[in-house]
Design a protein around this nucleic acid. Structure first.
Length: 325
DNA sequence: AAAAATGCCAACCGCAGAGTA
DNA sequence: TTACTCTGCGGTTGGCATTTT
């Protein structure tokens, strides 16, 4: 018996989402929280498969997503992370809390790959004289890189496990984070759509007998706490107080790490509506939103420094990209 | 101004792993 | 243990937008 299709192809709509569909989906998630995607199409009447709903939410409708141009720093992050992690876009995206894996993947495929390709070509032209040397070096570097990747994976695992405990450095290191700023003024065709959604959503909120925060509180608390670290804070007692604490922690973590960027991000104005911000980063563990860059930079900088024999890894990684900027 | 080429990105597809009965 | 469902992930593609000819 073959694998059943993820959804019944008959009667399932495909293609771009309409603002109306977005509203329905957002409204539903606002009430029930993300998750249980299987139930979404049946409960909402959307003629979409569950996968499509999830994808739409995680890649587009989820609050806290930054759209538009990538900053120089984000570019560097992606390039370095791609060198470290390969095409594991979800893992890379976890270090760029406001970006989706799809976004990063697209950006890599459309911009950075070419950029690096050009760079490489340029370097090869410039270094024709000692090409044999560089070949042998690069071979050795590849071996070292593999070893380093393994080492880093181990280290990451150790660090991730240790992060289950409260990390006093997390907030502090967070303050050192370069603030990711993007003048997201890109106006896509969809922007107008989201504005429509914003308007309609606001109407919906006004009309709704129960305001959104109440809806959020009255809904299943676990639905907001898909991520384990948040769940730890409130799952033991899904009381209103506990949930409020969770929301506060959401907001505080965001305001600390993203206050500047948040204020500058003008996209998706609808999600600046306070009620909806409770969704912030529902997909990303708080741990990651609080200290993604510090951890990464720790790898990038400390690890190489601590292991003198592998110091050229960073040289290589940075050297490959430094001239890009 | 129109056609062709290229770029870009939202969305789809299929596989794999985790969870569950 | 097994079969099944659900979800997440990465690769790919279709179609719209923009640029070039």
């Amino acid at each position: 018996m073959g694998r059943p299709p993820c959804c019944d192809k008959i009667g399932v709509k495909k293609g771009p989402w309409t603002p109306e569909e977005d509203i329905i989906l957002v409204s539903y998630i606002q009430e029930h929280g993300p998750g249980n995607w299987r139930a979404v199409p049946t409960n909402t009447g959307l003629l979409r498969c569950s996968k499509s709903c999830r994808l739409r939410w995680t890649n587009y409708l989820r609050p806290g997503i930054k759209r538009g141009n990538f900053t120089e720093h984000e570019e560097k992050m992606i390039i370095h992370l791609q060198a470290l992690l390969g095409n594991r876009w979800a893992a890379i995206a976890s270090y760029l809390p406001q970006r989706t894996d799809n976004d990063i993947k697209n950006y890599w495929n459309t911009h950075l790959k070419k950029k690096l390709g050009k760079m490489k070509g340029h370097e090869e032209n410039g270094e024709k004289g000692n090409s044999s040397d560089s070949k042998s070096i690069s071979k050795g570097q590849w071996e070292r890189r593999l070893q380093t990747d393994i080492h880093m994976a181990k280290q990451a695992l150790c660090e991730a496990l240790s992060l289950d405990k409260p990390n006093p450095n997390a907030v502090e290191s967070n303050s050192n984070l370069p603030v990711v700023q993007t003048p997201t003024t890109t106006t896509t065709t969809y922007a107008s759509s989201t504005e429509n959604i914003a308007r309609l959503l606001q109407n919906w909120m006004k009309k709704s007998p129960m305001n959104s925060s109440e809806a959020a509180i009255s809904s299943d608390s676990s639905s907001f706490n898909n991520n384990p670290s948040v769940g730890l804070m409130s799952s033991s007692s899904p009381s209103e107080g506990a949930i409020s604490t969770t929301f506060l922690s959401f907001n505080s973590s965001n305001s600390e790490s993203q206050s500047q960027s948040q204020s500058e991000v003008d996209h998706e104005a609808m999600f600046e509506v306070p009620e909806t911000r409770i969704f912030q980063d529902e997909r990303k563990p708080v741990m990651e939103t609080q200290m993604p860059l510090s951890l990464l930079e720790k790898w990038l900088l400390d690890d190489a420094a601590a292991q003198g024999q592998e110091g050229d890894f960073m040289d290589m990684a940075l050297g490959e990209t430094a001239d890009l900027f």
